[in-house]
Simulated assay, not measured.
Amino acid sequence: MKKKSYELYALIMAGGKGTRFWPESISKKPKQYLSLTSEKSLLEETLERFDRFIPKEKRFVVTVKEQEKLCKASSKGKINSNGIIFEPTGRNTAPCILMSLASLLQKGLSEDDVITIVPSDHVILNKKGFHSTIKKAADFAHKNQQIVTIGITPNFPHTGFGYIQKGKLLNEEAFKVSRFKEKPHFELATEYVKSGQYLWNAGMFVAPIRVFLEEFAEHAPLMFKHFEALMDTVKNPVKLKKVYEKLPSDSIDYAIMEKSDRIAVMPANFDWNDLGSWDALSTVMEETHGNTVVKSDGEFFLNSADNVVFAPDKFVALINMDKHIVVVNDKVVMVAPVADAQEIKKIVEHLKKARPDLL
């Protein structure tokens, strides 16, 4: 029997690698710890987005042990004093969430508590809109015992995002999820946007812990059968690792969201950018002479526009060059057309074998 009221908690997923932001995002300092849109890291900004909404004692971060120092530096004073949960090894989002729920229950949370799960590397400028959307999602999730995912109204046919098709309207703001769609090709993405039936999948989920667990039990039984063992070992890293490695490596979308009939989607009442790759910075930063200069020590542009430049402590000069990404650091120069920003991950694949020292 659910309680009439609920407590709201936040879980920030911060263990990713961010390969499309190479050469700045490397294994020693992945994307969520970079300062791209301000002086603060993306993880810091994510945590501060909950200020005056979810108190720091109710915020937790899940990451991997290799990122402990970076995570502590970015989250100091912004999360529960015992607020870092360590994933024993990178395993995909479904095992990570299941293990985190076990950890939260061991830390004293109740299955009636509502948890908001968000990524650590998104840019959202409208905090009030973010708060109101999450609050409405939490109220709906608690009242109806469902998982609410947040959808973003698309403003152009993006091929790098998954899409969610809206079903029937459940209340003033929430829709039943008709289906999740994989990243589409351009023509299909154009159809999705024109139809008005589709939202971008932002990878944010709000639900009572109990509902998450029930849906894991029903739709991911091979994973959920290890839940009791996770509960028993979550305070012992060595034993936890042995249990964790038995869990199938699935995304939360594939393990639960695409199968469950207890999923609602609520359109976001805020701006959103998932900063998937360098080109995305042009949508969240002010232009400098028609270009996006993230960092530099001055610049000169002649007949050059729509470029994205990241070159800390370097003077940058571009002549007759449009729509390119230019990234320079102490070890690497990388230049690529904006249209091919998604291809940067292929450099990372090459370097794994050829030059692991650059990762």
Rank of each mutant, 00 (worst) to 15 (best):
E7W: 00
E7H: 07
Y9T: 03
Y9K: 00
A10R: 00
G15E: 06
G16S: 08
T19A: 14
F21Y: 09
P30F: 13
Y33M: 02
E39V: 10
S41C: 01
E44M: 03
R49H: 05
D51G: 02
P55I: 01
P55N: 09
K56Q: 12
K56S: 12
K56Y: 12
F60D: 02
V62Q: 11
C71G: 08
G77I: 10
E87R: 12
E87D: 08
A94M: 08
I97H: 04
I115S: 03
V123I: 14
G129H: 11
K143R: 13
G151E: 04
I152W: 00
K166I: 10
K168A: 11
K168I: 13
V177T: 09
K183V: 11
E191S: 11
F205G: 02
F212P: 05
A220T: 10
P221G: 05
L222Q: 15
F224T: 07
K225C: 12
L230G: 07
L230F: 13
T233P: 10
K235Y: 01
P237K: 07
K242Y: 03
K259P: 05
R262L: 08
G276F: 03
T288P: 00
H289Y: 04
V293L: 05
S296E: 11
N303C: 01
N303I: 06
V309Q: 04
V309C: 05
K314I: 14
K323V: 03
V326P: 02
V327D: 01
D330T: 06
V332H: 02
A336E: 15
A339T: 14
A339Y: 06
K346D: 14
H350S: 14
R355G: 04
L358F: 13
